[in-house]
């Protein structure tokens, strides 16, 4: 049985609630876009319901604690039906047996959960490192990214604390939403002006007059801090995979 939800964590937890309500546990949670069409598989649309989601979330916290409950949220950000299903089965088990040994790495499904979380944590860390702001004439710092997983929500607090006195916008172009900070509060934004957002490195007008100069200086620095006789491109590529180059000043 495919459960179609709206792609939010709230919707995901609503699926768990519905599964217990209908006693349907052999469920694959997925979204309209991700669902693999199959004429034999049944599907059910699950509306997001914050009341139901909240009941599931507090229930989980009660049994395994806040820290462990958060792991399921991180796993959810994998944006992938297989990981969602793995997490879903574990949550179902958790409620059925009122218990789950989260550290039991000997179990393949729990190990998989931890490995998935590890991948997400790595991507989150990469976002802290690889996000590059471009300053425009009105003092707005803009960054565009395309992370593998939906990790931007996990780094917003980090950027808010760090760049507390500047206005910034971090936009996930793959998922078409982002976060804007006005110097006091962060708000979620999506579908800016109802059109595609531009590549910030292509914009020529509206830039801060010194922007191009600092981009150039950064490239100069990057080049001259390399030690030629130690060159190791294999290692370089492992640390900075090519898919991130598009948005890195020093690599474009």
């Amino acid at each position: 049985m495919n459960y179609i939800f709206d792609g939010s964590y709230c919707g995901y937890l609503s699926c768990v609630f519905e599964a217990f309500e209908r006693k349907e546990f052999d469920v694959i949670p997925t979204t309209q876009q991700l669902m693999v069409a199959n004429i034999f598989s049944e599907k059910r649309e699950i509306p997001s319901c914050s009341m139901k989601a909240l009941r599931i979330a507090t229930g989980m916290e009660k049994i395994i604690g806040r820290h462990n409950a958060k792991l399921f949220y991180h796993n959810f950000l994998a944006d992938n039906s297989l990981e969602w299903t793995n997490g879903f089965r574990l949550i179902v088990e958790l409620f059925k047996s009122q218990h789950l040994d989260m550290q039991n790495y000997g179990r393949p499904d729990l190990l998989r959960l931890h490995q998935s979380i590890k991948k997400i944590s790595r991507e989150r860390h990469r976002m802290k490192a690889f996000i590059r702001f471009v300053k425009s004439y009105n003092n707005l710092y803009t960054a565009i990214v395309e992370p593998d997983f939906n990790v931007i929500p996990l780094v917003i607090d980090f950027f808010k604390n760090r760049f507390a006195d500047q206005q910034w916008l971090i936009y996930d172009i793959r998922r078409n939403y982002g976060f804007y900070y006005n110097g006091r509060t962060v708000q979620e934004v999506s579908h800016i002006h109802g059109q595609d957002i531009q590549d910030p490195y292509c914009i020529e007008v509206d830039l801060d007059p010194k922007e191009k100069e600092f981009q150039h200086l950064w490239k100069t620095y990057f080049k001259s801090t390399t030690i030629e006789s130690r060159k190791n491109l294999k290692l370089h590529l492992r640390h900075v995979p090519k898919r991130y180059w598009k948005y890195l000043v020093e690599k474009i």
Partner: peptide
């Protein structure tokens, strides 16, 4: 680490 040089 914000980026890596070509020597890794």
């Amino acid at each position: 680490c914000h980026t890596y040089t070509e020597d890794g």
